[in-house]
């Protein structure tokens, strides 16, 4: 999607710069994204608008082309890396400016598993969508999840696994939540390459999410249901 000619980002109007940022995200150009984020902020844009209109929208396009088999994992990782650069600038500003919060999430890769690419993508996309995410990292025993959930006001638990041998551990976590009487207090989302919808149902998760974009949409749906129930 990139043009051969050099583009001076600061010379572009807002209407030109935002689509250019979508292109730069698509092409995984981290430095250009960081520069453009700073340009928009200097022009008086609210951090939340930069995040949603430029970065999240750009990643939404990347997500669609990943789902449709036009982009592959390496390109998505490069795009994510570029978005991460932009997010690093915006995150402290978002906290200061009181950007809207959709909900709070704990996420982690399960015990015995060190794979975190998918989890990291979900974390970033959830943060971009307005969720506060506590990332427990990799190789988490059940105690880590329970301790984290009990440490604050959380709505969603996300668990990730890449291995056939580690994915059953998700059931250990959910069963422990049931034993402790806390299962119904949270929406449990699961994901990872060897998982499928049947597995998600069988272990008692609320939903299986096949990619980061689906995770965000699913989380939003569950949060909307929760709010509707509370206001009913």
């Amino acid at each position: 999607m990139s043009d051969e000619e050099d583009i001076i980002l600061s010379e572009l109007s807002d209407d030109e710069l935002v689509p250019q940022m979508h292109d730069d995200l698509y092409d995984g150009l981290k430095e250009e994204i960081e520069e453009s984020v700073n340009i928009l902020l200097e022009r008086g844009w609210q951090p939340y608008d930069v995040l949603t209109k430029a970065l999240v929208e750009g990643m939404r396009i990347v997500g669609i082309d990943f789902r449709d088999g036009i982009l592959f994992v390496p390109e998505v990782l490069l795009a994510a890396n570029a978005m991460k650069g932009g997010m690093a600038i915006l995150k402290p500003l978002l906290a200061e400016t009181g950007a809207p919060r959709l909900g709070n999430m704990v996420i982690g890769t399960v015990k015995g598993d060190i794979h975190d690419i998918g989890k990291n993508l979900v974390t970033m996309m959830m943060e971009g969508a307005g969720f506060e995410v506590v990332d427990l990292g990799i190789n988490n025993p059940v105690e880590n999840y329970i301790e984290a959930l009990e440490s604050g006001e959380f709505d969603i638990l996300g668990m990730s696994a890449l291995l056939t041998t580690t994915m059953p551990y998700m059931k250990v976590v959910i069963d422990t939540m049931v034993e402790k009487g806390m299962r119904d207090d949270y929406t449990v989302l699961v994901g990872g390459a060897p998982l499928n919808e049947e597995f998600g149902k069988a272990i008692g998760a609320d939903a299986y999410c096949r990619d980061a974009a689906v995770a965000v949409e699913t989380a939003k749906e569950f949060m909307a249901k929760k709010h509707n129930q509370m206001s009913a």
């Binding site: 995984g28 390496p74 390109e75 490069l78």
Partner: peptide, 19 residues
């Protein structure tokens, strides 16, 4: 090739940083 490391060696630690 499938991980894109031939074209983008900078991705190596994203894939293998935990190994």
């Amino acid at each position: 090739k499938p991980m894109g490391l031939d074209r983008h060696p900078e991705l190596r630690d994203m894939y293998f940083g935990n190994y």
